[in-house]
Design a protein around this nucleic acid. Structure first.
Length: 576
RNA sequence: UGGGGUGUCGUCAAGUGGUAAGACACGGGCCUUUGGAGCCCGCAUUCGGAGGUUCGAAUCCUCCCACCCCAGCCA
């Protein structure tokens, strides 16, 4: 049985491939490719394409190549090819020995161009860029033919060779396909195939001073590699007739191009240009800033490859343009991390608690499970002493309705430890700020359980003050305030919608001692708070830094919000 | 007002003539030593609109409307 038949994926692309297979159009072979241009870092939108291409190949028992479409030496850099390779690998995909570059095909592409010239299907044009634009016509008016269009094959051959040998300045001559200047599809109005560019290429160096255009490269590259299905985004839909024309005139293998909608995500931007602008404008710390939707940023933030792959599967593939709710991405990480992250305790905004009836110099080691979802992950031991820290948010002098946490006279459970009761609140005389709490503990409740069936609604996380270690914690929020920051309908720039509080840095956090050994890319659940991981760039054993990947679902926060804004008209949709 | 696409729940998305899957979100309940997780229930009489064909239409036909892409020697 075909493995794909067992899978539920019903998107239109897989349906087409299944039909191609059934009707034997492709001789049972499925071959795809992921073709990035090495001019920036990969983002979650690329992940969709990577999962699609590699995923389909795997499902249909086929292959998927990694190919860099590096036809523009001015924009492309080695740094980007390295980061792209790393990201694809990290996502869990393997191109084995099939790593290619469009620049590998420069010689062949040159031969292809010669072939079209000899067939009278291509010519060298002397028009300036401005003139070419003028001659192209408009959306509603046909274009005009260039005076150079009727040059002889011999002259074209000679001129093209002289373009190649460096006789002409940049921008002075191009090679064009001779198709139809009155086509309603602008891509067919004698598109440029080659331009003169005296630029150093990251792979071919100074060997060439003419470079093929993407449109004259991509389809042929796919053809050369025997790609059966060229999956690309919607904007290339009306380039398809051009690619088909080249393939037909060149008489080479014809891949089938299928276009799908690119991914958009709420509260962020996805275009390389905009991401680049954020980096260069210093709005983020780099391509791998944990707030960026880049693969490297997400990796640093604590996202797992599995969660990204699951997300890509969940969003599906279709032709309609859409914007996926960021909440779905967050759901995907939580789902994955819930199963695999070790639970630990960390106090982000510490409030000192003194257990008055606990012996001054005593230290107990309490057992704590590492993950209630997976007993196989074992347990660890936690120091408990007379002085503790709890979260400031977990104490309210004047508790609102349904607040189950600590308050004067109230009893709560300290996770894995004891029940404690708040006996006294100490405040700063000047500011009125609560500085510490005096509590008593019930020795009969060791482990956080009492025989008498006493009801204790609240369970708090805590750390032992003398044993805990200091840490910095970075809390991230949406990079943008608006679900659709690109919407510049009102003339605003997308950067006007940056969230000024997308990063909150907490420097006085206290975490349990075991976290000293934490390594990057290993996630923890800070109990009751969220998922966190060590920052791969700024953390050190002396000064640990943690990134918050995502919060836990917080029904109390939701409830409290609702209590504060009781009556609301309709769905409360605000006109942002 | 040229060409190419797309319109199904708040957001994604199945469905391809037989009477609207699923996921997230949302609402309610159960459970709980994370107000986490888990579990249960609810959530489009309707598929951009209007006509038509048909016993029967989201699916076929006609017209209309809305939105996206294309005038780089970018990809």
């Amino acid at each position: 049985m075909n493995p794909a038949d067992a899978l539920p994926s019903q998107d239109f692309i897989r349906t087409i491939i299944r039909e191609d297979l059934k009707e034997n159009r492709i001789k049972g072979r499925v071959h795809t490719r992921f073709p990035p241009e090495p001019n920036g870092y990969l983002h979650i939108g690329h992940a969709k394409s990577i999962c699609l291409n590699f995923g389909i190949a795997a499902e249909f028992g086929g292959l998927c190549n990694l190919r860099f479409d590096d036809t523009n030496p001015i924009k492309e850099e080695e740094e980007f090819v390295e980061s792209i390779k790393e990201d694809v690998r990290w996502l869990g995909f393997d191109w084995e020995d099939r790593l290619y570059y469009a620049s590998d095909y420069f010689d062949r592409l040159y031969e292809y161009a010669l072939k079209l010239i000899r067939k009278g299907k291509a010519y060298v044009d002397d028009l300036t860029p401005d003139q070419i634009r003028e001659y192209r016509g408009t959306l509603t008016e046909p274009g005009r033919e260039s005076p150079c269009r009727s040059r002889s094959v011999e002259e074209n051959l000679d001129l093209f060779e002289r373009m190649r040998s460096g006789e002409f300045e940049d921008g002075t001559r191009v090679l064009r396909a001779k198709i139809d200047m009155s086509s309603p599809n602008l891509n067919m109005r004698d598109p440029v195939m080659y331009r003169v560019l005296h630029a150093h290429h990251h792979r071919t160096g100074a060997r060439w001073c003419i470079y093929p255009m993407y449109d004259f490269t991509h389809g042929q590259s796919d053809s050369i590699e025997g790609i059966t299905h060229s999956l690309c985004t919607l904007e290339f839909e009306d380039h398809r007739p051009l690619y088909d024309w080249f393939i037909k005139e060149l008489e080479i293998f014809a891949p089938r191009q299928i276009e799908f909608a690119r991914l958009n995500l709420s509260y962020t931007v996805m275009s390389k240009r905009k991401l680049m602008e954020l980096v260069e404008g210093g709005h983020v710390t780099g391509w791998d800033d944990p707030r960026m939707p880049t693969i490297s940023g997400m990796r640093r933030r604590g996202y797992t490859p599995e969660s990204i792959r699951n997300f890509c599967e969940r969003i599906g593939v279709a032709k309609r343009e859409s914007t996926v709710d960021m909440g779905l991405l967050e759901y995907s990480v939580r789902e994955d991390l819930n199963k695999r992250a070790r639970r630990v305790m960390a106090v982000l905004r510490p409030l000192r608690v003194i257990i008055d009836n606990y012996p001054e110099d005593r230290v107990e080691y309490l057992e704590a499970e590492n993950n209630p979802e997976d007993p196989g992950m074992g347990s660890r031991t936690l120091p408990f002493s007379r002085e503790l820290f709890i979260e400031r948010d977990d104490f309210r002098e004047d508790p609102p309705r349904k607040f189950f946490r600590l308050a004067p006279g109230r009893e709560v459970r300290l996770k894995h430890a004891y029940y404690i009761r708040c006996e006294q609140v100490v405040k700063d005389e000047q500011t009125g700020e609560v500085t510490e709490l005096h509590c008593t503990y019930d020795p009969e409740t060791r482990g956080g359980w009492s025989e008498d069936g006493r009801k204790v609604r609240g369970t708090l996380h805590w750390v032992s003050a003398p044993h805990s270690i200091g840490a910095q914690v970075r809390l991230y929020d949406h990079l943008f305030l608006r679900p659709d920051p690109e919407g510049d309908r009102d003339g605003s720039d997308f950067k006007d919608h940056l969230n000024p509080r997308s990063l909150e840095t907490l420097t006085t956090c206290r975490v349990e001692p075991g976290l000293r050994e934490a390594r990057p890319e290993v996630s923890f659940q800070f109990l009751r708070l969220g998922y966190f991981c060590v920052d791969s760039v700024d953390s050190s054993p002396q000064k640990p830094v943690f990134n918050r990947t995502v919060t836990l679902r917080d029904t109390w926060a939701k409830l409290e919000k609702k209590q504060k804004r009781p009556q609301q008209k309709g769905k409360g949709k605000k006109a942002v």
